[in-house]
Design a protein around this nucleic acid. Sequence first.
DNA 1: GCATGATCATGC
DNA 2: GCATGATCATGC
Length: 477
Amino acid sequence: MSEGTKVFFDECDPISIETYSQNMVGKTFAEICDEDDREKDSILAETSGYKASHENKKRKGGLGELIEERFFHYAANNDSQPDFDKAGVELKVTPYKVNKNGSKSAKERLIITMIDYCNVINEKFEESHLWGKAQLILLVYYLYEKEIKNRLDYRINYAKLFTPPAEDLKIIKHDYKIIIEKIKAGKAHELSEGDTMYLGAAPKAATSKNRRKQPYSDELAKPRAFAFKNSYMTYVLNNYIISGKSTYESIIKESSELSFEDYVMDKIDKYNGYSVGALCKEFNVEYRKNPKNLEAMLAYRMLGIKGNHAEEFEKANIVVKTIRITNKNKIKENMSFPNFKFKELVEEEWEDSTFGNYLEETRFLFVVYKFDDDNNLILKGCQFWNIPYEDLENQVKKVWKQTKKVLIEGLEITQVGKQKRNNFPKKTDNAVCHVRPHGRNAEDVYELPDGRVYTKQCFWLNNDYILKQIKRELIEN
DNA sequence: GCATGATCATGC
DNA sequence: GCATGATCATGC
């Protein structure tokens, strides 16, 4: 094809659209605009000598809109129809990033469509607005790089049609059902991304004051959108968009009547009453003196997984946590999370905070063990959990904000004997979480906003709070 | 006895 | 070399 020749595509044919989309792979948004400008210039020059207006670098609107107008040459339509209506293809232009270790991950969740609380309750999945837009997507992935200041200089590296495969679709349908049932129960205001596996109800508010009506409660709810979770999109990127990437073993190996979570609980419940020693024997795991993560490893073995990763857990952002109950029905230790950097935390707002988002987006599989009177650790069962929206938005938010305030006003450090005391939120201050050190030792430090350094800290969930979240039957007797 | 601070062990 | 899960030590 000669330079400047317009490449057409058949707007009724998904494959033709995908083929045409390959013309943007390897180009930046600016280059795509330049090409479009040159094309317009040449056409206009022939007819009138007029010069087309070129891309305004400060244009409003998303990069998706830019691709629609400058590459596919159609005007952005309203929300109710797929972008390529006649082909049933939805266009999504979305960023990915390359991590320090070279791996690639989605930078964002993929927003599909807003949840209309009052109408969605009457929509069957197959006929839903959501599925109309999610069943066939042209995924255009561009590389996000922190150093690049002008977003038009981001480079598009992949463009591919995507349909959720059957095994994912089963889980997505179940996720949809969970979201709809929560709305039907008058709890739209308690929706959280951690409620579900691949399809989430993602927060979508321009301002935190923005609220919407829901059908079965007078309580106003945050606007939310159906979205494929970040963790799911990372998997999609690495395994369906970039080919040849090895995947983790999956838990579901044959079709089952049970939902995913019931299937997992069933598998683990089969070993209830086993001691850790007996489980090690069962799975030929070497029992070491200091078992780091041994119980989590055993959980994977019970699920029939050889390694320490499972495909579904990666896609759904499910984190396995071991809970140890003492024979006095208490949990000895609080639950730790990744360290935070003092200087980064003070730059965040609660709505985009690392810890707040982590808790909202993460679903946990608690594997519960209990010490018997002879100090043997006995498996009691397991439970899926994510933090209730109320606890997140009240208690955790309070602790997070206080932590930020303390850092901004200057951490107060006092020496007491061998220990340094500080004024971060303490366990006694809040029923849900607190701040405590979490480093190699006291000399393992990060810089404070004011230039001093202090022992690395993280947020911890209080052990007595966790205990209250565990089902009674997993604790007693 | 427990909250708070400190440190260890291991895997990636 | 660091992150993470687990546990220990100090001090009230």
